[in-house]
Design a protein around this nucleic acid. Structure first.
Length: 273
DNA sequence: ACGGATGTTCGCGC
DNA sequence: CGCGCGAACATCCG
């Protein structure tokens, strides 16, 4: 699921579901989700507490609970927070759950276990190295084209690889990067330090646009499990995942290349090398 | 059946 | 130090 827009959506849902509600019990079988931290701490520490605040930075969620307990959470590739009724059947691959007094169960499902949950002190969350090393967040901080230009000028990496570097801009993944570069008409393999000011401004606009677009796809927080979702739903993105299909702008056949180990779709006509 | 997938991290080598 | 590359993680879907 997760790039910045999906994580932002998860943040809004979790605030709505958890804020101010007392957690009765917490469950988390030992899995890789808790790597680098104590799985037992989740079950032990959360009962009795309430969510006081929740912030998103890039693809990370930072949750502050009463009594200075904090969670750092990342959705990895297949992570998803959801809410179901207490007696409702639980989906597969649930890695952590929070039982609320009369508001059902909030759970974290993650088949591939690429996500992460770590228990910390709440007042330490922003000082964690994962969070400190993030670049500006497009929604929280906005995108300053001059600062982005400065950052891109310092590397010869492909511009697509550079904007997916979480230290350059926080939250951009393969989908947003692919569609943003298409909007900006910039070839994904262009060395980052060759972009001029005008192109970086177009790129900043493209990133904003792809984030807003994807955010708009999210709909409302589902209260109940919306299980049989997406399967069969069409790919909603602009050119991501559409190699071989016609460019939505000029109908040229979209191509794909590999950059930094990730598939990059682009239009050879609209995004010339 | 095979290949690829919205992410991060680590080790290796130049 | 910068950077590319492959691997690893575990499961699902077309």
């Amino acid at each position: 699921m997760p790039e910045l827009p999906e994580v932002e959506f998860a943040a809004r849902c979790l605030r709505r579901w958890l804020k101010g509600k007392r957690i009765e019990a917490a469950e988390a079988p030992p899995t890789r989700i808790f790597r680098g931290s104590d799985a037992g701490a989740f079950e032990r520490e959360l009962p009795g507490r309430k969510l006081e605040w929740l912030e998103r930075r890039g693809k990370y969620l930072l949750l502050g609970f009463s009594g200075n307990l904090g969670l750092l959470a990342h959705l990895g590739m297949t992570g998803k927070w959801m809410r179901i009724g207490r007696t409702q059947e639980r989906p597969s691959h649930v890695r952590a759950s929070l039982l609320l007094a009369r508001d059902g169960v909030v759970l974290y499902r993650d088949p591939r276990l690429f996500g992460r949950i770590a228990v910390h002190r709440a007042d330490e969350l922003f000082t964690l190295p994962e969070v400190r090393s993030l670049g500006p967040d497009p929604l929280v901080d906005g995108i300053d084209p001059a600062a982005l230009h400065e950052r891109l000028r310092r590397t010869r990496r492909a511009v697509k690889v550079a904007i997916m570097d979480q230290a350059v801009i926080a939250g951009i993944g393969n989908i947003q990067a692919t569609d943003a570069l298409f909007h900006a008409r910039i070839h994904p393999a262009r060395p980052a330090d060759t972009l001029d000011r005008r192109e970086v401004e177009a790129l900043a606009d493209g990133i904003r646009r792809s984030i807003e677009y994807t955010l708009g796809l999210q709909g409302e927080c589902e209260d109940e499990i919306e299980y049989v979702e997406e399967s069969g739903a069409a790919n909603p993105f602009v050119i991501y995942g559409r190699a071989g299909h016609p460019c939505p702008r000029c109908t040229t056949r979209l191509e794909k290349i590999d950059l930094g180990g990730r598939t990059s779709v682009f239009c050879p006509h609209c995004q010339p090398a």
